[in-house]
Amino acid sequence: MKILRLFKTGIRDAFKGVFRNFSLSLAAIFSIVITLLLVTASIILSANLNNITKQIEKDITIVTFMQKDATDKDVDSLKGKLEEVDNIASFTYKSKAEIKKEISNDSDVFNALLSQFDDESVPLKNVFHIKVIDVRYINDTAKTIKGFEEVSAIQYGEGMVEQLVSVFSVIEKITIGVVIAMIVVSAFLISNTIKITIYSRRTEIDIMRLVGTSNFAIRFPHLVEGFIIGALGSIIPILATIYGYTIMYSNLDGYIFSKMFLLIKPYNFVYLISFVLFIIGSLVGMIGSYRAVRKYLKI
């Protein structure tokens, strides 16, 4: 019961504390708003960059051309071999007859040219479109595929893919680094602002100590106060994330520059970021308070 009363008094005092030093609390809240806006911007940027790179990586395909005179038996044999390769996510097969039909439909010139051949004698090759699981190992996978006797040639943008992958990997690392740096900077800023708020109350903490208040009873209201300030400071960045991102997404029709660069859909994504912002704000608020109070709790 005693502990419950302490909790109740602590929460009441925390709310009183926020409003009693309202100008300082407001300063702390604004500092949290600004830093969390930076955090949310960097999270959105980083997550979308990663999403775009993942999309592009997904689109990378190894086009495998079979031997010119490949039979149905060879096709089945190659399918079997491809199923055995580790890094292959999926593959689709197109016979030369299907390819002839597609090309003919696309262009009248080709149609006129290819109509001279029947499906068997057409100078085209049967093709497998292969998607890989991990694009980083595409070279090895391509080498394995090229080694099969049924395969005459492969194409996957050799050289360019590796460059693209390494650029994406650098971008991913940089954006993750930026997000972590932003979180650390915000933690530092928020915790220092709250420290200033608590600093103004050092006399009160001093009196509490001298009249025999336990460290828990001194710390608890301040921790709650840090939580309240942090939570209040996260409201505007959360609203900005939810409404700002949704509006931006619908105005841009869900992509930037071209449909190759698709943005993450707002639903779930914005709520996940909002949750992260709330956690950062309130947790860092509490840590800031804890650090500040600890300084004045020296017996």
Binding site: L6, T9, R20, T203, D206, I207, V211, G212, T213, A217
Partner: peptide, 20 residues
Amino acid sequence: KLLPNLNVYENVAFPLESFG
């Protein structure tokens, strides 16, 4: 060492409240 924002009653009650 009185707390300026608390009245006389609250100042005297202050330690007891923090004892729960």
